[in-house]
């Protein structure tokens, strides 16, 4: 388990670096696909099978297909054509080190202080993972789910409107 986690964690960090650092957008997109698949494996290790399926279908499937299609259609030359500015990477690295130090110090100062709930892996396995998530979605979280469906509708209408309109 620990060895598996170490392998997936290293995979995640390498592919995330690929997303940030590659100069051609298609390589960034493919790195992001690999990153999302690794994250799906982590979800599986965390006993969230439903989220594993959702991650693979929605992110690695739908969202990344959209990205790759747009890159293939528009063929943007990316930063390759733009003049390089080395200084922004230095500032970015400084920011990243400070930000990561803040996050890590917060994590080790506070720890996990929440009150444990009743849904242990055994309790979830007795009912079934998807069943448990479904019951929670349509009882306790019914209102957020409905609001999200409205948001999706608005996004679909907005995307169609933007695609129809010609800007000068």
């Amino acid at each position: 388990m620990v060895v598996g986690f170490a392998i997936v964690a290293a995979w995640e960090i390498v592919t995330a670096a690929g997303v940030v650092a590659f100069r051609k957008p298609i390589y960034n997109a493919l790195s992001l696909v690999a990153n999302m698949l690794g994250l799906a494996v982590l979800f599986l290790m965390l006993n969230a099978q439903f989220l594993f399926a959702a991650q693979v279908i929605v992110y690695a499937g739908a969202v990344m297909v959209l990205f790759v299609f747009i890159i293939a259609l528009m063929n943007p030359e990316s930063d390759v054509a733009l003049p390089r500015r080395g200084s922004e990477w230095i500032y970015g690295a400084v920011f990243g080190v400070i930000f990561a130090a803040l996050l890590v110090s917060l994590l080790f100062n506070r720890g996990l202080t929440g009150r444990p709930g009743t849904l242990t892996p055994e309790a979830i396995a007795a009912v079934g993972n998807v069943q448990t998530v479904g019951i929670a979605l349509y009882t306790k979280f019914l209102f957020p789910v409905e609001v999200t469906s409205l948001l999706l509708l608005i996004a679909a209408v907005g995307a169609v409107y933007l695609a129809m309109r010609r800007i000068r």
């Binding site: 969230a48 439903f50 989220l51 959702a54 996990l112 929440g114 009150r115 444990p116 709930g117 009743t118 849904l119 242990t120 309790a123 979830i124 448990t132 998530v133 929670a136 979605l137 306790k140 979280f141 957020p144």
Partner: peptide
């Protein structure tokens, strides 16, 4: 924390 709320949030 043996809860399912985080999974729903992530969804």
């Amino acid at each position: 924390l043996n809860s399912l709320d985080g999974v729903i949030f992530a969804f």
